[in-house]
Design a protein around this nucleic acid. Structure first.
Lengths: 140, 140
DNA sequence: CGAGTAGTTGACGTTAACGTAAACGTAAGG
DNA sequence: CCTTACGTTTACGTTAACGTCAACTACTCG
């Protein structure tokens, strides 16, 4: 299999960092925190598609204001084994809480959007009135 | 006018802090950072309804993962005077960027919600299958 | 008047999420 | 072989957003 086959590509730390607009330092930190686990070729880190997807999820979590520890917890939900009943129930409980959190956050966003749109309307109206006043002056 | 009239109530720092589940220290910090400006009665801070609304907005911003500096910038949008044309255009530009930010964040939330819901379905199905297996065993 | 409660400023401590620099290894190219 | 580019670990520095503590003031209650 060639390295260039789609879906099997690998990435150096620098490549991945540049692609996502973060620094190598950040990627190493995420690894230390248990959010990434690239393979090694000797001492160098080799990232695959799976790691790439994880990084995408990390950055999504960051945009939503989550701490790295919270992001890791959400990964634990992805990874946890579906072995025992108690385990599954615990997982469902955690998922439910995440869901609530997200719904609340979405409400906040909708409210903020409404505020921004209201301010935008006010401002464009004020601008329009200002300009209409200037037109009158020019034609006066 | 009485202090107890609706809409004119005032609050001590402790009252406001408890109501919103934050500490007095946080309120003082928000003030230092220019996010709040309560009146004073001698040396003590007196918060009114307007301050209370602001605090609500501050906490909404925090839930969305914004820095205090970003929250303050959004307040500047509320407060900026509609005097000059250039001012209004600048404001409309900033509002537009906020709007984009919020829309992006909303997409992130919708994606995260979809993930959580998929995981929830998987887990509840696994749980159901596990329990159906247990029922068979009991009746075997 | 003394104790308790709630507020004040000032200063130092803490945690997360990196930035930055030092000192070193390694593979490619001229 | 020497330089350049890219990687490694280790460790200390930095910023934001508070927590915590000390020392002081002011009001109220018994």
């Amino acid at each position: 299999m060639k390295q260039t086959e789609p879906g099997n590509r690998t990435y150096s730390i620098g490549e991945l960092a540049e692609e996502f607009g973060v620094t190598s330092r950040a990627l190493r930190l995420y690894e230390e925190e248990g959010l990434l686990d690239p393979q090694r070729e000797g001492t160098r880190r080799i990232y695959n598609e799976r790691n790439r997807v994880r990084l995408r999820l990390i950055l999504r979590g960051k945009r939503l204001g989550w701490a790295l520890s919270e992001i890791r917890e959400s990964f634990d939900l992805y990874d946890s084994d579906h072995g025992e009943e108690a385990q599954l129930e615990l997982m469902l409980d955690k998922l439910c809480k995440r869901h609530e959190m997200l719904v609340e956050q979405k409400k906040d966003i909708d409210n903020a959007l409404a505020d921004v749109e209201r301010l935008t309307n006010d401002a464009s109206q004020a601008l329009e009135e200002l300009r209409s006043g200037q037109r009158k002056l020019r034609h006066g």
